[in-house]
């Protein structure tokens, strides 16, 4: 039963994410596009820039949204004019894949390193420490009696 509930929750969350992404693609808002695009002169996102060209780009975005363009269409038009540098995050293609992959490779390498160090550490402890000696039967009985008082 628990598994079914978990699966249903996951499916619901996935549906919500997909629906939200589709809505964002079909009916983008000016504010989300302004946070994902960079002013080509000042290298900050449009929402934080007040440069002339940034203001012109914001106006272009609003006009294109009103005309019914999708998010990809608006982004593509701006990339066509100003090049891929207007994208706040690099596109997932060609050399730019490195920007996405390198952090993941770094995390994987760090995890491997931590795992290797931890394994080596636990092995050296297991080898270096003497095995625990069994308790004297009388002491063990006394310990049991003491512990029983607290139960």
């Amino acid at each position: 039963m628990k598994r079914v509930v978990l699966l249903a929750a996951l499916a619901l969350a996935a549906t919500a994410l997909v629906t939200s992404a589709l809505a964002s693609e079909q009916k983008p808002t000016a504010s989300e596009l302004e946070s994902e695009l960079v002013c080509p002169v000042c290298d900050s996102t449009l929402d934080t820039s007040n440069a002339e060209i940034a203001r012109r780009m914001k106006s272009f975005i609003r006009v294109r949204i009103a005309a019914g363009d999708t998010k990809s269409e608006i982004t593509a038009k701006l990339v066509d004019q100003f090049g891929p540098r207007v994208l706040a995050v690099p596109p997932r293609k060609g050399f730019d894949w490195l920007a996405w992959l390198l952090p993941l490779v770094g995390i994987a390498l760090a995890a491997l390193a931590v795992g290797a160090v931890a394994r080596g550490w636990s092995r050296s402890r297991a080898v270096g420490e003497p095995p625990a000696e069994p308790l004297d039967p009388a002491a063990e009985r006394q310990l049991d009696a003491e512990l029983a008082r607290y139960e």
Binding site: P40, V41, I53, R56, F60, Q81, F82
Partner: peptide, 12 residues
């Protein structure tokens, strides 16, 4: 004389 229009909209 050559003008180089930079970081601009073509239409503008």
């Amino acid at each position: 004389f050559v003008g180089i229009d930079v970081k601009d909209f073509r239409g503008d």
